[in-house]
Nucleic acid binder design. Sequence first.
DNA 1: GCTCATTTGTTCGTATGTATC
DNA 2: TGATACATACGAACAAATGAG
Lengths: 250, 250
Amino acid sequence: MNRSRRPARLTHHPPIPVYYRLQELVLKEIESGKLQPGSMIPTERQLVESYGVSIGTVKKAILNLVHQGFLYRIQGKGTFVTGTTLRRESLRYYRLLESFDGIESNLAVKPLQLKRVPGFHPASRLLGIRADQPLFELKRIFLLEGSPVVYSISYLPQNLFKRLDEYPSDEFEKKPLYAAIEEKYGLPTISNRELISAAFPSREAAEALGIPKTVPVLYMEMLAFTYRKRPYEYRRAYCLTAERKVFREY
Amino acid sequence: MNRSRRPARLTHHPPIPVYYRLQELVLKEIESGKLQPGSMIPTERQLVESYGVSIGTVKKAILNLVHQGFLYRIQGKGTFVTGTTLRRESLRYYRLLESFDGIESNLAVKPLQLKRVPGFHPASRLLGIRADQPLFELKRIFLLEGSPVVYSISYLPQNLFKRLDEYPSDEFEKKPLYAAIEEKYGLPTISNRELISAAFPSREAAEALGIPKTVPVLYMEMLAFTYRKRPYEYRRAYCLTAERKVFREY
DNA sequence: GCTCATTTGTTCGTATGTATC
DNA sequence: TGATACATACGAACAAATGAG
């Protein structure tokens, strides 16, 4: 009677479909970090045997997660956990164009300073942490053909990003922040929100951008989310839009 | 099963899967307007019989179009063509919030003027029409609690929107432009692009918004697309962001 | 360059459940 | 209640891509 020895069996319990329960189960493995971005998940056959469901049901569960962007499949190889990279285009913060049919410019990043700061309003509340929890503050400049176009200040919860300040700072130049965070902490960026306004730059921003305080800039507040809409970064950025404008696509 | 006798409709022609061909076929019916937004498409059974494919293949084709947002299904009723409305949240141009956790404000629309104008650069090129084709120009003001916050100028190709100027102008107050266009011309909005910058308002915009020319505003250029990424509207808008900021979500 | 085991992709079809009107 | 339409679950058979040997 190997029936008693069978692992977590997905029995037929009407209201919630079997494929949906399997789907959520795999999703939890991803979110909890047991399945890291880029790693391969069990094959269809293995899932069929582990959970005692049919191949069709396994396919449906997996394909749903593929459609939702959590997994991708390669015929002949297997099924893998999606990292942020596959959604990159829609998640890039600064996409600068001269016009709709102009070409997109590549920005260079220069980290200025990374330090620990106390929590403050509204960052702590937006990040969903207590106001007495400390934060990392990361200041950066984004350069377009050598001249500064974006000045950005990011706040990250210290409890999520332990020892972030021991991270070699030139790594922040080589890759986007979200890529570094995904690699080091296994937190892919799933979605983000922005509040955009036109304003004059703060003194600090004007200095960093090398412009007078009388030039209007885009002031962008941003919140980045990982799995389950958990916020992990709050950012404030000042963007110079004299030559190129910020491009957004839906 | 008896595989020697094939009902030759969508025959087995390897490189392109059958479900994909069926999917494209239905999509073309939608795009050409033969299937209007909101109308019901043939049932699974009818598709099975019309095209001589299995129910599983039909399901796959239809579900793909559902995932892509072109169709929606109601169990027991049928499968229907999606209008713009179902994607509304992500396609709303002006979403104004005080802060990330503030509540979204509702804007009132006031049409100012609708007239025919000659084509011009860059509108004609962006709309994919010849420069000598005339355009409709629609100027509107968006009000927040009675005071103007957005001044917007839209350009629409006259060949796509015949007799738009005979449309009762108070209809533009009752519903968003895209809703009126979908209803009258059967063109749902599928995606859009924006270029955002910070600037001082033009004289015209400053007057319409009732602000001095020294107040920075968001200058937003927008292109709206219908099926197959066909552009149908080019818009320029000036948005006052003193109190509330433009909200974007990805 | 070829073969083979593995893995996903496609197509077929049946049976039954559930929602709608 | 019955007829209709979509949803779930099952699974077989074969095709196509991958990577190792």
